[in-house]
Structure formats: structure tokens, C-alpha cells
Amino acid sequence: MIIGILSDSHLKSDYTKEVIDYLKSQGCEYLIHAGDLCIEKNLQLLEESNLKYIAVFGNNDRALLELSSKYNIKSEPYYFKIKNKRFKLMHLPYHLTPDVDIVIFGHTHIFEKDYKNKTLFINPGEVCAREKPLIECVKLEIKENEYIITRYFRDINEKNFKKEEYKYEQ
């Protein structure tokens, strides 16, 4: 199972489209957005990806609340399952408890990953390149006994994504 993870698109729908297209080119079967989509265009891009996706409202998404029935966007923390893995998705990192297999959050605009108490924690960083001149996203590959996290990042003045890979045994 291969999942693309992104967060904090803000008003950068061009970067959001680029990240979604890139994650699709890397074989992602699902997309998870950890909030602060800010504009309907970013939700449309998730919908138009033709991948199964889920998103949560961020602290800057009040204007999107009325669109919850049109798009697959939920209130946080949102619990769901893909195949045999249990997820908890949130924007604000207020529910970072190991009560599922994988916890995904955003808000800080900082890439983070940790594996403790048999729970994987991921913050994909920021799509919007607001806090630093980097467009970031994550590919999570879930194998039978291993998680492989690939962080993709691109300086806004460069053309190609670079990557870092991290592995955790389950």
C-alpha cells in the first residue's frame, strides 16, 4: 500500500497540483491531506486526482466548512482504516496519542517522523513554502513488516524534487 501525504497547502494551488501529480507519479494509491487547504481549488485538486483521498479541516479552513458534504473533508481528529491499518488524521498536533497504527498531523510546517509504542507519527511538512522556500510531501509505503517513509522536497527555485528515505520495522 502506497499513500501520499501532504499538508498546509494554504493558497498555493499550483504547488498543491504539482505535489499531487508528483505523488501519483511515485505510485501513490491514496492521498491524505492534514489540513489548511484554505481554498476550494485545493479540494478540487484532490477530487480530480482520481485517487481515494481524505482530508481534515485545519485552523485556516473555516471558509470550507460548508463544503464538507461535497468533498471528503472531516473534522479532526478523524479516525479511519485503510486495509488493516488504523489511522488518526488531524491538523493541530493536539491528539498525538498512540491509539492507532499511524498518526498524521500538520500545522507546524515542519517535517517530522517518529515510531514509538508501535505507532508511526508523520508530519509531511508544508506544500505552501511559507515558512521556508521548500515544497514538501511524503510517500508512505506500508509493507508487511516495514514502513518506508520517503520525504520529497523541492526548493521553489529548483525544478526537481530531492528525497530522503527512512525505514521502520513494524
Rank of each mutant, 00 (worst) to 15 (best):
I110M: 10
I110S: 13
I110E: 13
I110A: 15
I110N: 14
F111W: 09
F111C: 05
F111R: 06
E112A: 15
E112V: 15
K113P: 00
K113E: 06
D114A: 09
D114L: 03
D114V: 00
Y115Q: 00
Y115H: 06
K116F: 06
K116Y: 01
K116M: 01
K116A: 03
N117L: 04
N117M: 05
N117C: 05
K118C: 08
K118P: 02
T119E: 05
T119S: 07
T119I: 04
L120H: 09
F121I: 10
F121G: 03
F121R: 08
I122R: 12
I122N: 01
I122T: 10
I122H: 04
I122E: 05
N123T: 08
N123E: 02
P124V: 14
P124Q: 09
P124K: 03
P124E: 06
G125Y: 02
G125D: 01
G125A: 04
G125K: 00
E126G: 15
E126H: 11
E126T: 15
V127Q: 06
V127Y: 04
V127E: 10
V127S: 10
V127F: 03
C128E: 01
C128V: 10
C128F: 06
A129F: 11
R130Y: 13
R130K: 14
R130Q: 13
R130F: 14
E131N: 11
E131G: 12
E131L: 11
E131S: 14
E131T: 14
K132Q: 09
K132E: 15
K132S: 15
P133V: 11
P133A: 06
P133F: 10
P133Y: 07
P133R: 14
P133H: 05
L134H: 10
L134D: 04
L134R: 11
L134V: 13
L134I: 12
I135A: 05
I135D: 02
I135C: 06
I135M: 03
E136V: 03
E136L: 09
E136M: 13
E136N: 04
E136C: 03
C137T: 11
C137M: 08
V138P: 00
K139T: 12
L140G: 04
L140A: 04
L140E: 01
E141G: 03
I142A: 03
I142R: 07
I142T: 01
K143M: 09
K143W: 08
K143E: 12
K143H: 13
K143Q: 12
K143L: 15
